[in-house]
Each structure stands twice: as C-alpha cells, then as structure tokens.
Simulated scan of single mutants.
Amino acid sequence: MPVATGASTPGGRPTGQSPHSLLRTVRDVADDLAADALGRDRAGRPPTDELARLREAGLLAALTPPGPGRGADWKTACTAIREIAAADSSVGAVLARHYGYAWSARLHAGRHHTGLEEESVRAQWLWTGAVRGSVPHDGTEGPDLALRPRGVGYVLSGRRAVDTAAALADQIVVDAVCAVTGDVLVVRIAPGARGVTVETVPDRLGQRVAGAGEAVLDRVTVAPGQVLGRRPRDAESAAPVGALADAAVRLALCHVGLGIAEGALTEARDLSRSGRGHRLPGDPDLLLTYGELASAVQTATAVVGRATAATAQALEAGAHRDSEEAAGVAALVANAETVTPKAALLVSTRVLELGDAPGLDRFWRNARVLTAHLPVAQRLRSIGEHYLNGPHRVGAAAFG
C-alpha cells in the first residue's frame, strides 16, 4: 500500500509524500521538538505551538489514511509516530490518536468516505477521540454519552475524558447510545460547536503537553453527516474491518510507548558517552544494564513490528478480511499492548540509575501516564482464550 504523490495542502506542502521524504520531514520535526522538550514539559501548556509546528511541516495532512495523491500507509505512519514520540511523547500521542481516529469513517462505516477524508487533508484537521471498547467487559461501563433523535439528526449530551488535544482538535470521535433504539453510534463533533465545553486537566504527572481534558456536551447537534458508523452490540456481530478500529488506535499508542523507551535509552546513552553518568563507559555492570535495556527495547520492537505488519495487511484488505483473520490481528495488537508498557517502564525507570541529568525523569512520568489505565489482565485473558480455543471462538471485538 504505497504512499501516493502529487497532492498539496493550501500552503503548498505535499500531502502524499514518498515514505522516504515524509520520514525525512518527521526527523526534522523530531529534532526541533527534542531541542526544547524539557522546557515545554515543565511548562505543561496545551500543545498550541506544537500543533503549529506539525501543520507547518504538513504532518497533519500527510498522516491520514492513504488515497489518490494523499495520505500515508500504516507502517510509514507508525514509524513517524514513534520518531516523534522518542523526541516528545506528548506530541507523539497527539499524532497517534490523530492518525488512528482519521481512519474512523473508513473503518466504522466499512467504506471509504472520500469527501470527508479529502476535506480533512485540505483543512489540515487534527483528529482525536475517546471511543470505548466494542463490548463491555466485567467491571467496565458502556458509553456514557446519550444521543436523542431530533429531526433528521440527533442531540448529544454527557461527559467524556479525551487524552489528547481536547480543546484544540478539529474533530473528536466518540461513541454514544441512542436513547430510542439502544444502538451505539460513532460520531464526530467539533470542540468549538455550540454546547461543547472542554475542562482541561492541569498538573498532570506526565504527558503534560498532550492537551488532555474532559469534553462536556450539552445537547450538541449531530447532523447525519457526522455519524460515522454503528458499533456492534456484541463480538459476534462485529464486522471484521470495524472491529479493527479500536485495535488501530491502540497499536498507534504502542508506538508512542516504544518511542518513550527508545528516547529514554538514547538520552541515557548520550549521558554515559559524555562521561556525565554515574559510572564509566567501560564498567561491566554498566554494560550489563545497557545490554538488558537494549534487549528489552528490541524485543518490544519485534512484537510491535509484527502487529504493525499484520494491521497494515488487514487495513489494505478492508472488507475482504474475514472474522478469524481480524481476530488474529487483534490478538497481535493485544500482545503488543502487554509487552510495550513493560519495556517503556523498565527502561524509563532504570535510566534514572545511570545519571541524574535534568528532565530524565520525564520519560518515566510519560510512560506511567500513558500505560496507567491499560487493562493488561483483560488483554491477556483474551489472548489466552484466542490461543486455547481458537479464533472462531474469539472475535476481534473481544480484544477491545
């Protein structure tokens, strides 16, 4: 699924760059972000300036689903997310949710929404979202937002926590229950729409520049064109492509966790090489530590890479992918979700033993916040069910 070439944003930047060209732009942006990452982390302000950098570089338009003359394929986009996250994981998380939720119309509706995707590219929309799992699990609740029919559309009310760019995004994707039919619909809303207010989250432990907040929705009008699709009532009724919508966003966030581990290890290595670490570069114990940490990152990279390749194939196949194959992809993503947090937390914790450079703790804080609410035990049970009883017993939605 190659990246197309030729289209441009209103500012003249290409939206369908080759993978090599796109990643070169990404590395330039990552270097720019890394230069002042510590100061911005300490300030903890919403990512207004950071989004201006991304737009100026054309990344919001480039990191969208591929189409004629636009967008980026899944593998290239995930590489870009990881590169940015290694420099600044808050901005990496913003891009991860942007790219994952930009696929929402295509995955939830089961067909291309060409007009919507082209508009997103032209306007350089920033996407974010807070869609809950396909199927409620023990100890969890269903959607806390309610839709009521009004005319040809709906009105939407309730509250929903949004982890990135809550007040700055152009489109927020959420799921909500129709009060009349009981259907769970996936819809998009604009933070600036009438009836939408966003309460920011101050003084976060980590991911301070991600722009987290809570969207408060008071009878917000939802037009028919804002309804992206319908969520399944249970795992058995989930369409294979639609069931991958959750997995796609979660896998993109795995690349953020991997970026944190890589960024922490690189910064610690630079510290040790410069002689500013706690031990000399040739110390056998130091070499053992770096061997353990590098091995943990490489293991996580392999697991995440396998899930990324499988997801890319599934997205390319689209509606031709059957339910058992989709369940296999979801299982690989769940594996990535169990391995990546361990690597990110291990590396970001152990590097604190290697030196006391200012800001080295931010990697641990960011990893902790990114993974704090990840239901690892739930994922492991689903993986176990899939392994023990086969994909015919576990649909992809069961991993949500």
Rank of each mutant, 00 (worst) to 15 (best):
G133K: 02
S134W: 12
A190K: 10
T140G: 09
A169P: 08
L116N: 08
V186W: 01
G133S: 10
E118H: 06
W125Q: 12
S120Y: 00
W127F: 15
Q171D: 06
V174E: 00
P143A: 15
D144H: 04
P136K: 12
L185V: 11
E117I: 08
V152A: 14
V196R: 10
D163L: 03
R148P: 00
R148E: 15
V121Y: 01
T128H: 07
T128E: 05
A193E: 10
A165V: 15
H137M: 08
G115T: 12
V131L: 09
G139S: 11
S134M: 07
V174H: 01
A179V: 15
T128L: 10
G158P: 05
Q171A: 13
G182S: 12
L126E: 08
Q124N: 13
C178R: 11
V198K: 00
Q124L: 08
R132M: 08
T181S: 15
S120E: 08
R160G: 00
Y154F: 15
A130L: 04
R160Q: 14
D144P: 00
G142C: 09
G195A: 10
R188F: 01
L126Y: 06
V184S: 09
V155E: 14
L116M: 11
R160T: 09
G158E: 04
V155W: 04
L185D: 01
L185F: 10
L156A: 09
V152N: 11
R122I: 05
V173A: 04
R159V: 05
G139E: 11
T181E: 10
R132T: 14
T114C: 00
D170E: 13
W127R: 05
A167Q: 11
A130M: 07
G115C: 00
E141I: 07
A123D: 13
E118P: 00
P191I: 09
A165W: 01
A165Q: 01
S120W: 07
V174M: 05
A165E: 01
R159P: 00
A193R: 02
Y154C: 06
V173R: 00
A169K: 03
D163K: 06
A123T: 13
A176K: 07
